[in-house]
Amino acid sequence: MTEYIFSILPSLLGGTLVTLEIFVITIMCSLPLGLVLAFCRISRYKVLSKSVGIYIWLLRGTPLLLQLFFVYYGLPYFGITLDRMPAACIAFVLNYAAYFAEIFRGGIQSIDKGQYEGAKVLGFTYLQTMFRIILPQSARRVLAPVSNEAITLVKDTALVYAIGVGELLRATKIAVSRDAVTTPFLAAAAFYLVMTFALTKLFELLEERFGAYE
């Protein structure tokens, strides 16, 4: 048993690396993109705010798997052909940015308007107010929902299996089919659990750090 697990470990680890790669790329790109979208969403320019509203509706309102298929199988019809991995990352970034945008919008709008007024009478510009006063306070409030999304993302990466990216679940499935045993599934579950556990701890630390002033 132990021996068997060790024998499949390299391929599972390889799959985990791909999973982590998708995770890191998605987080790194969708967080800033989500922030930009959130700013657009609360912008007083109606066209901008409405278009982003529609974007969010589309991306949250359709299955991520469908979006993945669209980017990988659908875009070639429009003359855009992407490799599996870039296609997977683009779909994930676009999808998660929509969720993050709504989380950030909520966080920004939850800050008391007295904070804007306090900053304004001191002469802060809008951007200074945002980056020095509003966002640092919003950060604390959005951490919990962001950690939810991050944990969901770890598991959602398994979806890219459907377009043939060799991530953890695919590596597992290959081992299961080849060796006709179910042990790899358990091993994969353990891998996912370790990753989500690490994330949970990381966010707990961040919450402590950002909440120090309360």
Partner: peptide
Amino acid sequence: FQNFNLFPHRTVLQNITEAPIAVA
């Protein structure tokens, strides 16, 4: 202000120095 509107994420000293540093 009536409700102070201090910046809760900044210490007392930082509340006072924030604007002189960033704005002035």
